[in-house]
Amino acid sequence: MSDIVICLFSGSGYDRVAQGVAGAGRRLADQFDGRLHAIIAGAHDPELIIRIASVADAVVTLDQKELAQYQPELSLNAITHICREIAPRAVLFGNDTYSQETAPRLAHRLGGAAAGDCLDLMTHDGAIRVKRSVYGGKAIATIELKRSPAVVWLRARAFEPVATNSASVTTVRQTRLDLQSDDRTRIIERKSEAAGASRLEDARVIVSGGRGLGGPEPFEDLQELAAMLGGQTAASRAACDSGWCPPSWQVGQTGKKVAPGLYIAVAIRGASQHMAGISDAQNIAAINIDADAPIFKNCRFGIVEDYRKVIPLLKEKLAALQK
């Protein structure tokens, strides 16, 4: 009961989320003096397997036909089966859709306890504790998991990666499970709105728009600005709820938690629920017409002006500076 499992869904490669989960898993396994197992579920990704194998002590891949594409019930059944064999002290996930969907149910099946969106992971007298942001980022709670295994999904970018050690001897096991079919739910159609684009969670620079934009059109300007900076575009809940941009752009307590090097908030007031999504950003800059907007209490630099006047000029100046 001192082994640790990390569970990853393939599809995003060895991205910052996978690196954070692997790093957290390695350190926890070392603390418990246990082995680090990795479960990689979904379509076969040799690159991901090689990178994970250089951090973990054992890798199990779940890529058989029925599991190559995620299905909620089947994938959960398969992961539960592997975890029962390993009997770990903890199972760690990233904070993607599939992980969040799987973790609490896995905890229930294993007789363990789950905690989610964790910013920190530690041990206290042999118990596993996590820190998580609550009340829309206004407070931080420390939670001790009373059952074993601890099943934790991490705000993965908050966790440092570890150096990969290609010299380590790791067994990679491609598992074929005899899975009973479960047609109670079945994914019949998948659509990616930003084909090929990297995840918002991985963006270095994010240009984000809010209610103050007043409509969908200004988002085109923001997208151009983001493209100039090699970044991506996001939005507040108010903008998404108004239908000005897709829901997948939403950042905040009720959207994505992002951690870019630079977050430029355009016409976003900065309510605490929005700030909860960007608390891990290294630098926040704001463009807002209201000097009293709460966003200015949390940003590194800002400009108090109407964004309509600022954005065209800003694009011009950036283009000149980038030459």
């Binding site: 270095r204 620079v205 900076l229 090699g230 090097g261 630079l262 430029i264 290294q282 630098n283 926040i284 800059a285 704001a286 463009i287 000097a291 200015f296 209490k297 949390n298 940003c299 590194r300 630099f301 800002g302 400009i303 108090v304 002006e305 006047k309 600022v310 000029l313 800003l314 100046k317 950036l318 500076l321 980038q322």
Partner: peptide, 29 residues
């Protein structure tokens, strides 16, 4: 965190300072 409001006599000067800060940060990333 204390916010630095970019200063300048004209909008253009302010935006220029803002752009400089953006470039400075993105280059360091």
């Amino acid at each position: 965190v204390s916010c630095e409001f970019v200063s300048g006599d004209t909008l253009e000067q302010k935006v220029e300072k803002f752009a400089e800060r953006v470039i400075e940060i993105t280059r360091a990333l």
